[in-house]
Each structure stands twice: as structure tokens, then as C-alpha cells.
Computed example of a mutant assay.
Amino acid sequence: MTQTLDGTVLVTGGAGYIGSHTVRALRAAGRDVVVYDSLELGRREAVVDAPIVVGDIRDNDLVTATCNEHGVTQLVHFAAYKAVGESMETPSKYWRNNVAGSVELIEACLASGVNHVVFSSSCSVNGTPEVVPVTETAPIRPESVYAESKAMVERILHWYGQTSDLRSVSLRYFNAAGASFDGRIGEDWTHSQNLVPLAMKALLLRDRRLKVFGTDYDTPDGTCIRDYIHVADLADAHVKALEYLGTGGDTVAVNVGTGVGSSVLDVLDETARAAGEQVPYDIAPRRAGDPVSTYADPAFAEKTLGWKAQHDLAAIVDSAYAWHKSQLNDDR
């Protein structure tokens, strides 16, 4: 193991949904971790066994002090706003935090000798794909401010790689879902706009109905198709990406998905199976900008990072249902 892999991993946004699962995966892999989170959207209790520093990624002095105090050698950068609709209504919030904030963070890390970055990107950088499954060579055509902010940081990381010794892996997530298999942490549905938690909310709270946006698409059942990836698999991809950088890997962008497309109704059918009852839903008109079908070609991730998804849609839904059901008596 190299000296880099012996050091501490700084995880920004590590109190969030994917961040907290990744922190647990890193700890399980024997890595030392320090979480850096504003706690605006993250939850302190989701960080099970790592120290947490509360702060803004634009706070150069605090980032530098954190890196130096904890012996940080690698960065996993999750901290970002991610609501597509909000990004179109309040774009400055996304430019300032997701883009300018990332630059400030990278500068502080570089000054502290941290030159390995795993970046939380998104398949949304490709916009509506012309061809599925989506490969890493697909055109970069963002269709929202949020997606553009991710694409811009990927380009920024590329140029840091040209002008410094920084190397990075941009992981382009498809649809993260599910919860930890021990039921410890999951996706807080308070702010989420994702299908799985919204379906669970409609099923378990019984005070609302899910909206299914469009059933007239050119797909087998008429609903949109997406690539749902278990959050535990996604967390493992971050561990593998850090190992790749720590053993000399070059800057690269990697699609992180299962390669299997599931429709909205597939997800609702799996949820009904897990719960033993149907999700209440209504058909609503199509939403502007929703791609008909998008799912990953995972071949490059397996070849480059030695990573492959291990869990299917049933495992995603089972773990999510168990976790959300366990939260019903929570006072949050």
C-alpha cells in the first residue's frame, strides 16, 4: 500500500446520503476518514464513526487546518446542491457553491499537499442520451444549471491535472437508491425528489399519492427507464476510485451504474412486492426534459476501477423499505 492510501480521506458532504454510506465503506476498508459538512442538508447522526468538521467548503482556512490536523492525503468531494428545478430558479446558488466552492476547496487541498480527488459527478452531464447504454464517450450536453455545474467541475479538474500534479476520478452516478443493509442509515425523504423515497413516502404515510409523470413513452410499459444503483455499490466505487488514484491512476471520468434499465412501474411493482401492498399513484403529464431512457454501460468502470455493481433492484427496494419503515417512529 502506498503512502497516499495510508493517509486520511477528507469527505466533503460526508453527512449526506451517498457521503455517509461512502464514509462507512471507507472505514470498513480500514481507511482513516474526516468528514467536512455544513450540516445544511446533511445529518450529523448519519456519520457513524468518523470525526466531523462543520464548515463551508469555501472556508479556505478551515479546510487547510482540517487537512493539516488530520493528515489528509486524498479528497472525496460530495458537497453540492443537487435539485435540478431549484438550479434553474436560483442559478447563482449553484455557481457559487458547486463551481466556485469546488475551486476554493481544491486550492486549499492542493496547498496542503492533497492531490487526489474523487468527484461526485452525474450522468446528467450527458443530458438526453442519443444512444443507450451510455458510455463515457457520449457528448457532454447538460440540460440544467445543476448538470452544467457538474460538467464545469469535471473540466476544472481536467485543467488542474494539466497545470498541477492533481489527479482525479469523476464518478458519473446514475440513480442512487436503497439503504444500508444493517438498517443504520438511508435516504432522508424530507427533501428528496427521487422516485424510491417518494414511493415509500406515499406507501407508508398514506396521506398522499405518488405522481407518475407520463405513461405514453416509447418503452415497454410507457414509463421512463432509469438505471438504479444501490448506494452501497456506489459507495464501493468511491473506495475503488481512491485505490486507483493511490496506485498511480490518471485523471478519468467513469460512469457508475448497473447497466440495467428499470421503468417507473418496475420500481412500483418491486415496492408492492416488498410491502405487500400497492403504492398509491396517479398519472400526471410528462415533465419537460425527462429523458425517455438512460442507463449506463458499466464496462469501463469494471476495466478501469475493478468495480461492478453487486445488487439488483429488488435489493435496493427491500433495503429502502426496511429503512423507511424503521423511521416512522422517529421524531425527525
Rank of each mutant, 00 (worst) to 15 (best):
Y94R: 01
F174I: 00
A309S: 13
S144E: 13
D266M: 09
L313T: 09
V34R: 01
M200Y: 10
R43I: 06
K93Q: 09
T247D: 15
A299H: 08
S122G: 10
H324F: 14
A138W: 02
E148P: 07
A50R: 05
M200E: 09
V132P: 04
R96A: 04
A29Y: 05
T223C: 06
F181C: 02
E187H: 14
V23P: 08
A315H: 11
V252H: 04
D61Y: 04
E302H: 11
A28G: 10
R273K: 14
A50P: 01
A65L: 08
L195E: 07
P197S: 14
E40C: 09
T66Q: 02
P142Y: 05
T135G: 07
I283S: 11
T190S: 15
R226E: 01
T8E: 07
A65P: 03
L265A: 08
W159S: 03
G30D: 10
V196R: 09
V47H: 03
V35Q: 04
P280C: 15
T219D: 06
A179N: 07
V33S: 00
Q74P: 02
G259H: 04
S180P: 07
S144T: 15
S120M: 11
Q278E: 15
D56E: 06
D32R: 10
G178I: 05
L265R: 13
I57Q: 00
S92M: 12
D37C: 06
R167A: 09
K325E: 15
V131P: 09
A274S: 15
C224L: 08
D282S: 12
A177T: 03
D330I: 12
P197N: 14
V239Y: 07
G127F: 01
D312H: 05
H77M: 06
T2G: 12
L166E: 00
L265M: 13
T247G: 14
